[in-house]
């Protein structure tokens, strides 16, 4: 079972890369779904049926709502921050760093526990101390998803990638909990599932609003002139609104080149 779960952790990271680097909404949401659903299962021991069912329902619902909101979005997404190669490189580096950090953390915890295997403190029967590869893979995947998501939420350019970044961070928090806390309580799993579904719904609402107001997914913050310039549409030299300025058609305004002859 362990190799499958470690492979699943890698698949989660691949899904995360696809969700932030894909050029089409379909691929991005598919990657997001893989990352969110898979993250719930990278745990040792695997959570109970109630918890897993709740996480599956919550993550699927969250990703589905994002997909529904993208129906009227443009077929091509705004350019990704790092592209496929860059995102994959970031994810791989973070995965390796996370694996090594988990390795060191496990050894430090084992040393802190003493020769008897217990520190005398309550709790913390995590598999990380016992040297579980799944726990290491979970920490590594959490680091990887965090590295992928942080740029999307720190300087968001479009609503889809902002929502994706938020959901990936939630998945990373769940992975960290799986690895560091041990088996989560079913109620905690349920709470995480509800939060994921609500975060998906909120992301979907923001995406739908951006499509409704601007026709695309770009976040146009009036207080960020750099964002406005970077995402200036190609045909903004003569915006439609200027033609009807003050109720006077552009062609009949004084000084207009194409205006009627005096």
């Amino acid at each position: 079972m362990t190799p499958v779960l470690v492979a699943l952790a890698v698949l989660v990271v691949v899904g995360g890369v696809a969700s932030v680097a894909a050029a089409t909404p379909r691929a991005a949401v598919l990657g997001l779904l893989v990352a969110l659903v898979g993250a719930a299962y990278v745990a040792d021991p695997i959570p109970g049926a109630v918890g897993l069912g709740a996480r599956l329902a919550g993550t699927t619902l969250g990703a589905y709502l994002v997909w529904v909101a993208l129906r009227r979005a443009p077929a091509r997404l705004p350019p990704a921050m790092a592209g496929w190669t860059g995102s994959a490189a970031i994810a791989a580096a973070a995965f390796i760093a996370g694996w090594l950090a988990a390795d060191g953390l496990g050894e430090a915890l084992a040393a802190a526990a003493g020769p008897g295997g217990t520190s005398g403190r309550a709790g913390l029967d995590t598999t990380l101390v016992a040297g579980s590869l799944v726990a290491r893979a979970a920490v590594a995947a959490a680091c990887s998803l965090t590295a992928l998501a942080l740029p999307q939420v720190v300087g968001p350019r479009d609503t889809l990638r902002l929502g994706t970044g938020c959901l990936l961070l939630l998945a990373a928090a769940g992975l960290a909990g799986n690895a560091l806390v041990g088996q989560l309580d079913a109620v905690v799993e349920l709470a995480l599932a509800v939060l994921t579904a609500l975060a998906g719904a909120a992301s979907a609402a923001v995406i739908a609003a951006s499509v409704r107001h601007g026709g695309d997914l770009v976040i146009r913050d009036a207080h960020r002139p750099d964002a406005a310039i970077r995402h200036r549409p190609a045909d903004d030299a003569h915006p439609l609104g200027h033609r009807e300025l003050d109720g006077v058609p552009a062609a009949s305004r004084p000084g207009s080149v194409s205006g009627p002859a005096a």
Binding site: T159, L162, V206, A209, H213, I219, D221, A222
Partner: peptide
């Protein structure tokens, strides 16, 4: 307008 989207994006974040 776009300001609502930007504000909602900040709240979401």
């Amino acid at each position: 307008g776009p300001a609502a989207v930007a504000a909602a994006a900040r709240d979401l974040r």
